[in-house]
Simulated scan of single mutants.
Amino acid sequence: MKKIIVPVDFSKHSEDALKTAAFIAKKQNAEIIAVHMLELSNAIISQSESYSQQEAVFYLKLAEKKFIEFLNKEYLKEIKVTPIIKHYKIFSELNALAKEENAELIVMGSHGIGGLKEIFVGSNTEKVVRNSSVPVLVTKDTPILSNLENAVFACDFTNEDIKPYQEAKKLLSKLGCKLHLLHVNTPYGRFKSTKETQKKVVNFLTKANETLETLHQVQHISDYTVESGILEYANQHNMDLIVIATHGRKGLSHFFEGSISEDIANHANLPVMTFKI
């Protein structure tokens, strides 16, 4: 891993993300690209051109000063940090920047007392997740300052799940984190017999170029809802991370349609990492 992007808004949550990125960067000898999205008000934009330009420059200089002060942290001393200020809050720009810089990860902090609630209801984090073709790691309440050892990737074992699974496994292996595949069987809608489930899993793992050993490691759990099954498994097995596949702008993965991802995000006491299908 060479580059990690961290959006910064000077809040505690963005500092938690910065600390997390710093921890990963030190392990991977990676560079951090810190990005501040500077939003100028319509009042400034609607003013006369010369005055508007002067005021815009003033706010830009103010943001630059605050940015430098914010990045003056002891835990960043041994890391290459590149600060970038974007002039508008267009969060799709982060994806373009990630592609331009060949970054492998975006790290963001969560907002809201309810946990990651705002991720999927219009927050900045949600906008980044939906626009990003790069994996997004969202920290929960506190920064990640110790090694991630185990992550759970729950899916319906369809062909669409193969690519995000492979990407998640590859990235997490760099972080020394083992990815556990999980299938949640519910009595409603998507219920499948053991035979049907095994057939899907075998087909999935074959196309994903996995071994027979991986087949035996796939975990199966039954619960009344997918989200409760994932959270129960994560808690019982001391998972460090929940991994979710998303469709980006088209919404969340078919497996996580409706309120499932929101419920997982709201009730999980774990960081969440997303991979685009």
Rank of each mutant, 00 (worst) to 15 (best):
L60T: 13
A21Y: 09
L105Q: 06
S41L: 14
V81A: 03
P83Y: 03
A63V: 10
K65P: 05
N102D: 12
K66C: 00
K12E: 15
K3W: 07
N95M: 03
V121Q: 12
K89N: 08
V57Q: 15
E100R: 10
F91Y: 11
G112Q: 03
A96K: 09
K12W: 08
A96Y: 06
V107Q: 10
F70R: 04
A25S: 10
M108G: 02
V121D: 07
A25G: 02
N72P: 02
A98I: 04
I113E: 13
E93M: 11
A25I: 02
A63D: 09
A43H: 10
E31T: 14
K89V: 05
E31H: 08
S46R: 14
E100K: 11
E69S: 08
A22R: 00
K77D: 06
H13D: 13
E31C: 06
V35W: 03
M37D: 01
H87G: 12
S50K: 10
A98Q: 04
F58C: 02
G112W: 02
G115W: 10
K86E: 15
M37W: 02
H111R: 13
N72L: 09
M37E: 03
Y75G: 00
F91C: 03
F70V: 08
S46H: 11
E55L: 15
E64K: 10
K99Y: 06
K27Y: 01
D16I: 00
S52G: 15
Q28P: 01
Y51C: 04
E15N: 01
E118Y: 10
P83H: 05
H87R: 15
K77T: 10
E118L: 10
A34P: 02
F10T: 06
V107R: 07
E55I: 14
Q28W: 12
F23T: 00
N95S: 14
E100A: 09
S92V: 07
T82D: 06
I24L: 11
V121F: 10
A30P: 05
I68R: 13
I85R: 14
A25T: 07
D16R: 09
L97S: 05
F10H: 09
E69N: 11
Y59W: 12
L40Q: 14
N95W: 00
L94K: 06
F70S: 04
T82Q: 06
E74K: 13
A34V: 00
V6L: 07
K73A: 00
